[in-house]
Write a protein that binds this DNA or RNA. Structure first.
Length: 472
DNA sequence: ATGTTC
């Protein structure tokens, strides 16, 4: 894969047939994937062949190999010009994302109660493969209300406050969810998992604000140095996974009929305006609402534990997805166009002044939440005006080792002891699960964030460090 | 990521 260095944080893959647009990779030289180990840059070029794609197939600094699209990929297609939507451009964990809450408590004030707090959070947070959830919905009507209402429905039911919704992407629920496009099998898988963390890289962490880079923006976000926070990273569990599987299969069958040919069958797609495209978007929106309700319920459970153990309140800073496709209006060649923006392992980053921001964030931009790898720091960023890639930035550290490689690297070592030696307490999680998520399996999140800022995608606001982690 | 290979 030939890369042309355009600037210190921007590389180009020149367009060659059958690419419709070039590829653009935002990264430093040292963050670029190793072609021998990771074929994600080939995936960037493959995405550039999709019908209706505009500008470029983009990769964020945390790019790595994924299903069809790379993780850390952004691609927008022009809806009115045959643009497609591809489930692989969203990923299996639809609307996986991050929620950050800030306590009215400083880390010094928490020290003596941290163990009790983590015990309480560990007990109150359903986690792991399958099993357990805050809600178990046995009837389809109530699950449909979750799929339509997302965090709004959870708040209506008493699991949160109105102010939370102002600090959620889409005010807590994506419009145009169509539960009728969600299979019975997906419903069955999701019914018992509403309000559960899952496993893998998902977590609930107690963190502290270690460093603030912009006082005014941090203050507007509700963050100050030394403050205790809770970060929740999870998604749509088995429901989103099943929806992705179902709709990839349907699209594989009809792609030829739509005259679409792709270099990798994992890029299965259909025109946004086709029946199959609309069906996927309706089901995807339902899964997105499920993921938002999921984070709302876990946050509510964490609030109850915080109140009981510390007497402290938790205020929502923001909730944002990093696996989603959205119909958005952007300028293309000087004209406003309706685009289907796929962000897979990429976070929307609205700049100051954007009309989708709540009033109290209008002047500072959208909080962008970047979870680091387990036991390392996390970041809060904000959007910047005139950024490339349709107001998107990175989503995390980005894997450099496969799960299998990570487990092998930890053989004979004790991952829990290593974390505790770094003063990070752990609740839950299998030994294998921890081994898969050790920092050595990931890029350096600070380098990723620095490259994203250097590329003009976002700006740093604060860095958070972990005090304790609850894992699946 | 995932009832971890329908």
């Amino acid at each position: 894969m030939e890369l042309v260095e355009e600037s210190p944080y921007r590389f180009r893959i020149d367009r060659h047939d059958p690419m419709r647009v070039p590829g653009v990779v935002f990264a430093s030289r040292s963050l670029l994937p190793d072609a021998g180990e990771d074929r994600s840059l080939e995936q960037v070029a493959n995405v550039a062949t999709l019908p209706g794609i505009v500008d470029a197939s983009y990769a964020m600094p945390d790019v790595h190999w994924g299903y069809g699209f790379p993780i850390g990929g952004v691609a927008a297609t022009d809806v009115a010009r045959g643009g497609v939507v591809s489930p692989g451009g969203v990923g299996f964990d639809i609307s996986c994302g991050v929620r950050l809450l800030a306590a009215d408590l400083d880390r010094d004030g928490l020290r003596s109660r941290l163990d009790a707090l983590l015990d309480g959070l560990g007990e109150a947070t359903p986690r792991g493969m399958g099993r357990g959830a805050v809600w178990h919905l046995s009837n389809r009507a109530e699950l449909d209300a979750v799929l339509r209402g997302g965090s709004r429905y959870a708040v209506e039911r008493g699991f949160g406050v109105q102010r939370d919704l102002a600090r959620c992407e889409d005010a807590g629920a994506v419009a145009d969810a169509d539960p009728a496009r969600v299979s019975e099998r997906a419903i069955e898988r999701g019914a018992g998992q509403v309000g559960s963390l899952g496993s893998g890289n998902h977590f609930l962490e107690v963190q502290a604000v270690e460093e603030v880079y912009d006082d005014a923006v941090a203050t507007a976000f509700g963050l100050r140095p030394g403050q205790v926070c809770v970060m929740i990273h999870c998604g749509s569990r088995g429901l989103g996974h099943q929806i992705c599987t179902d709709h990839v299969r349907k699209m594989e069958k009809v792609m030829a009929r739509h005259g679409i040919h792709v270099p990798d069958r994992q890029l299965a797609c259909a025109p946004v305006s086709s029946a199959e495209g609309r069906a996927y978007l309706g089901a995807m929106a339902a899964a997105a609402n499920y993921a938002r309700a999921n984070r709302q319920l876990l946050a509510d459970a964490a609030r109850r534990v915080f109140a009981r153990v510390t007497g402290s309140r938790l205020d929502l800073v923001y909730d944002v997805s990093h696996n989603l496709a959205k119909i958005e209006t952007h300028a293309v060649d000087g004209a406003r166009r309706a685009l289907c923006v796929h962000r897979k392992g990429a976070t929307r980053a609205l700049p100051p002044g954007h009309d989708e921001l709540p009033d109290d964030l209008r002047d500072v931009g959208q909080p962008v939440l970047i979870p680091g790898s387990m036991g390392t720091g996390s970041y809060v960023l904000t959007g910047v005006p005139g950024s490339p890639a349709f107001a998107s930035t990175c989503h995390g550290a980005g894997r450099v080792q496969s799960r299998r490689q990570a487990v092998r690297a930890e053989r004979g070592l004790d991952p829990r002891a290593q974390l505790e030696a770094q003063d990070v307490a752990v609740r839950g999680a299998s030994r294998r699960g921890l081994a898969e998520e050790m920092p050595a399996a990931y890029k350096d999140v600070s380098a990723v964030v620095a490259a994203a800022e250097g590329a003009g995608l976002c700006r740093r606001v604060a860095r958070l460090v972990p005090l304790g982690v609850v894992k699946g």
